[in-house]
Design a protein around this nucleic acid. Sequence first.
DNA 1: TCGCTCATTAATTTGGAAATTTTATATGAC
DNA 2: GTCATATAAAATTTCCAAATTAATGAGCGA
Lengths: 245, 245
Amino acid sequence: MKRSLAIQPSAPPGNSPETAEAAPKTLAEATYWRLRSDIVWGKLPPGSPLRSDELRAAYDVGISPLREALSRLAVEQLVTTVGQRGFRVAPITAADVLDVMETRLVIEREALTRSIKAGDLSWETNLVASFHSLSRLPIPHGPGNAAESWARHHRNFHMALLAACGSDWQLRLAGLLFDQAERYSMVRALKVSAPKLTRDTISEHKQILDAALARNSKAAVAALEKHYRATTKQVLAALQLSSAS
Amino acid sequence: MKRSLAIQPSAPPGNSPETAEAAPKTLAEATYWRLRSDIVWGKLPPGSPLRSDELRAAYDVGISPLREALSRLAVEQLVTTVGQRGFRVAPITAADVLDVMETRLVIEREALTRSIKAGDLSWETNLVASFHSLSRLPIPHGPGNAAESWARHHRNFHMALLAACGSDWQLRLAGLLFDQAERYSMVRALKVSAPKLTRDTISEHKQILDAALARNSKAAVAALEKHYRATTKQVLAALQLSSAS
DNA sequence: TCGCTCATTAATTTGGAAATTTTATATGAC
DNA sequence: GTCATATAAAATTTCCAAATTAATGAGCGA
């Protein structure tokens, strides 16, 4: 008997109230989101193979929507696919981490500057709200639902910063790269014991927030860079640890 | 009897010698590239519906690889898909044009600067070669094989500029946005009569090349911006013309 | 004439079986 | 023992038909 997939796949979307995304209208789309979450939050670890039969059983869908979902994820570089040799979760390398983080900065420097310049009251309000809920959530140690919830709020805050930039493409690319980076952070969360995380991320976020509200784009960009570079450093350290083990 | 698709779909890859891309190993992949080309080069015009039966007949493939290809294109924003209402070629709006062109600049400014800093002799060589073949190709008037060939060389030159930037993500995103922009340029080529194109694009490209070879990144970036902004202006003008007709 | 409901038609979407390709295993020659 | 070749097993990829969903239009009453 074949061993089935070792993961607990994420449930079909009985939509959690905190995420107000457009409900998927097709099975393929739903499967895409479920797989995406499971990859981004590390349930499907980097490098692991994605065999159609196992996934079909685990997610309870046919082959067609499954392949469609995997194909989409391949375009986003969340999974890799080689010729007739199937799909696997994209592996993580140190070079990738650096590249993604620096490229995020290239885009977000511009988007944040524009957003600060153009943001109106509703932008400010949403930003303050995003920060508040993020700051009141306990920083999770180790994987689990709390970690996912925190990560979602974290994403919301960062996207809220850029929301008023006026460029759909910049928002889209920033989101794409955010999710790539999230995957790296999950490696960190999974592999490194909690006590080592001694950064004060709340205050890092607050610095960005304050500068943004003060409409000081130079300071906001500087704070953002500091935040990202600190994350990069931690992830790289965790990656070395895990590759040594 | 149903009217079949009005286009002559691009041939299966009996690979033309000038494109040294990795040969597609699956039908889905091949179909993806054929469709992509036909969308980017304007054979499938913006907004036109992509019905599975028609495409199946036109490209002579089954439904599964077709959907897989369309799904991938949807992630790239080259086609749109709504719930259970199928796929269509993504429409073009003036706002899109501006957004894509400005976002290209955000990425390419950085990538070009890095490339100029890090480029070695083989980078220079490849760059010079790309420029040469581009400059000797007659600028095509109206659609056709010559137009596609020119566009391919044009793409090669622009990517050669960035090739040494050291960031896979920046290269990938630049390429993605290049193809988006190409679609807009095709609208221009299709709708505007040739005599109106009085720009000296060769000299625009030469200015970028010379600055790059002189390792003068400030000047190269300035020339690139000039080149893109001129293109943007023309595309926007053509778009207004065509929407007025 | 307009608006509504309900059947009819046309399209997309999905599941699974057949075909193809890769990977693993066994057999034999050197 | 090592390499090459042939065979078997496993996996991916594709085709196609059934199921589902949206679009269309006729009939009917106000």
